[in-house]
Design a protein around this nucleic acid. Sequence first.
RNA 1: GGAGAAAUGGCAGAGUGGUCGAAUGCGGCAGUCUUGAAAACUGUUGAGGGUCACACCUCCGGGGGUUCGAAUCCCUCUUUCUCCGCCA
Length: 425
Amino acid sequence: MLHVADIQEHKEAYIKALKKRNFEAVELFDKVLELDEKRRTTQAQLDNTLAESNKLSKEIGNLYKSGEAKKASILKERTGNLKEDSKNLQETLNIAVVELDTLLYTIPNIPQESVPAGTSADDNEEVFRLGEVPVLAEGALPHWELAKKYDIIDFELGNKITGAGFPVYKGKGARLQRALITYFLDKNIEAGYTEYQVPLMVNEMSGFGTGQLPDKEGQMYHVTNDDLYLIPTSEVPVTNMFRDVLLEEKDLPIACTAYTPCFRREAGSYGAHVRGLNRLHQFEKVEIVRIEQPENSNTALEGMVDHIKEILNELKLPYRILRLCGGDLGFTASLTYDFEVFSTAQDRWLEISSVSNFKTFQANRLKLRIKDKQGNKRLAHTLNGSSLALPRVLAGILENYQAEDHIKIPEVLIPYCGLERIDLA
RNA sequence: GGAGAAAUGGCAGAGUGGUCGAAUGCGGCAGUCUUGAAAACUGUUGAGGGUCACACCUCCGGGGGUUCGAAUCCCUCUUUCUCCGCCA
């Protein structure tokens, strides 16, 4: 969420930037500043009332000690009113704070200068493309048919034991996916990321810290008995490790990587685009998360993009990178690059990674700050990205590496996989 | 799941109704000494709000209560530890 002081300072620039998201902020900002003013004046009144009441209490204590009980009981009567006042002021304050916060939760992050204006995915800006889109031989199959042909992913079996969107990976399919996970983690560790294994369920505070709650509640599976949420991405538990943390400059940058399954309800998704591995309720993902000094965060973002490029180059998959336009930018992001791998058989691009700089938007909710040598504190910048989302990478490999009677394993994965190809059973 | 104990600053650990935002030790920071370092000594060192800056307010696991006044008493929730049971 945005910081009120920043809204005050950069109001006009923020209003202009939010227009790129087609978000009208003028009235909201006015209301925010008004509520903040109210918050501060009420707080001041409350503080004064409490100060007076503290003073009286001290006097009463002294009077009792010197044996002047009568004088004390006279003073006691005055505390009653103060108590009433402070109770009312506290209530007014609480209401103002809740109203202010509720409003702030509805305001998305400020898009950066480089974010193009736009209303939909069509307005995203392609910033990189590797080579030409390949053309497959006649009779090339989409990955869901390959999965069946080589008996490596069973969608029906998942249907039976859970429901749609929960596939079962089998034999060499399972092995290939496991190889990819290990390969991704190794690449990340090599690049300086520390590996974590984190809980797959999080509490409400964590969902709130990274911005899934309150507004994206319907996208997460909620375990109501224990009031826990299944993670939609490891970003949530990993970033929340740093909730309520005051870092020192020497601790930075922080770079974490984690492999987890991810769970998404995907309410409202339907149609041909959810076929096969394209969109699942449970999928595997390796994530990278960074915490940076504000002045380094955009450089760090470029570094993450380069890192993911390297992985895709090694896998020799056709891909492109998009800079998301204002209309397609996620609520919490200030700048996002999407990586898409080309699904040759489907003739469409599949998103396999999304790399974002959140600047202080998450840190403000998380209360994640940095203290410098002089003791000054400021909010950290958080970033994250997928490296990578497994099912669609898998789909890309199956489709792009298919031959008539086998699927080749990408060279870089052979040592991880212990296989050179997937043959007909 | 049952029984008991506990939760205090970066850490350890005092504090059982007012003089406590909190002793003491360790750690951190600054300085003295030293060619430099270590040791020793001196000072300093929690967080949030508020203010131009002070003042002032809030915070001793979370929430509620008693009281003129709560780290301290009461209720409740959470977490941790010990013992028993169960268990990958």
